[in-house]
Structure formats: C-alpha cells, structure tokens
Amino acid sequence: MDTYLWITSVAGVYVAGVVFVAGIGWRIYEWATTPKSPVRLGMFPKPATTGGRVAKMLTDTLVAPHAARIEPRMWFFAMMFHVAALAAFVGHLRIVQEYPLLPDLLGAEGMNAFAAWAGGIAGTLMMIAVLYWIGRRTFGPFKNLSVPEDYLLLALLLGVIIMGNHMRFFGHVHAAEYREWFQSLLAFRPHVPDAISNSNVGWSLGTHMLFVNALLIYFPFSKLVHTIGSFAANYARSE
C-alpha cells in the first residue's frame, strides 16, 4: 500500500505536474509563435469594438449558445460536465487551503457534510455526462468519427471520477487529512498520513491519482487543449 501510494500520490503527482505545466507551456508557445492566418476568418455579425469581441468570445466559449440551439441534449450534458468539473475543482482547492468563512459558519461537521453533498452531486453529474459521451460514441456517425484518443480520454475521465466518487461515498476520510498529504507535497516534504493509508480509501486515492496523473500527462498532447484553445479560436470568429 505504501509503495502504491508513494508511486501514484507522491512521485506520480510531481511527474504529472511537471509534464502538465511544461506541456501546456509548450503548446501555448507553439500557437503563439506560429504566424496568424493571413485571411481574417471572422464571420458576421461581428462586434465593432474590442470589448464587444472579447465579450462575444467569452459568451461563445463559456456558454456555447449556438451549440445549444443545434443540439440541445449534447449541450446540456456538456454544460453539466463542465460546470460540475469546475465545482469539483473548486471543491478540491480545500486540500490546498481551507476556505475562509464557510467552515466558520457551518462548523467542522457541517462543512464536511456540505462538502459531501456538493462533491457527491458534482461527481455524480460528471459521471453521468461521461457515460452519456461514451454512449454517444457507440453508434452512427459519432462512432465513425471517433478515434482511439476519444475513448482513451473518456476512459481516463471515468477512472478519475469513479475513484473520486468512491472516496466521496464510501470513505470516512475528510479534507483535513487530504490537506495534510497535499500540503506536504507542496512543501516538498511528502508524506501520506496514516489516516489515509490505513483507511478503506487508501487504494482509491492511489487509483484516483493514477488516473489523474495519466490524464494530466496526456492533457497537453490531446484534444483537451480545447480548454485553452477555444478562447483563441472563438476570438478569431470575430476578427
């Protein structure tokens, strides 16, 4: 157990962190150093001002109103996934630093209960969305269009989510212990608290992190770079 956690939740995290940051940096550098398209690729109607273009770009990227109009169901699940993922990300920040205000307001018990509900809902919604995407890729034109990369990413996401949900729903370890582990990583004095490794979710954390690391390492080299590229591409729509 200790070896597994050391590989996935200590060494693996460092490796994944470095590859992710360097990879994204490299990707942005590649884009930034390739000359712009000589042709203005915008379509009409275009906002007249830079402010208007930025506002439109943000709306198009964050809300995707056109996609909502043409395939509402896909838009719904995609929105559900992304919003839940954002919520889950925000929730995970607790293991870096406990939030101000809310814990004072709810008390330690109340905060854990709140996190269990919020995290549980986010994790469930993400799982539903990923299952929908997997299902969607099993038939017709969606299947024909899919390449192994698509399935690999969905599999990694599913792994991350299922193991996360397992910790959420079946574990009795709360943020404080995970924070101890994660802050030790940030301080470069890594150690995994016994409360985690001796618990029933030690293996789940290890496996959760295994999938997370794989996803982060592959992230900059996959279509997941749409998370940053879509801002630029949607801006070009108004140029």
Binding site: E30, S37, V225, A233
Partner: peptide
Amino acid sequence: KMNRQLKQYMDICARCAICKDA
C-alpha cells in the same frame, strides 16, 4: 499553409460532431 488558426483547429477539435446537423 500552416498558421496559428489552422494549428488550433487541428489541435482542439473534440470530434463532438455538433456540426453534423449544421
């Protein structure tokens, strides 16, 4: 023919096929 926009289009398409009904 390579340029920034083309490169981004190549890199970011999620093959979601929302374009199919367009």
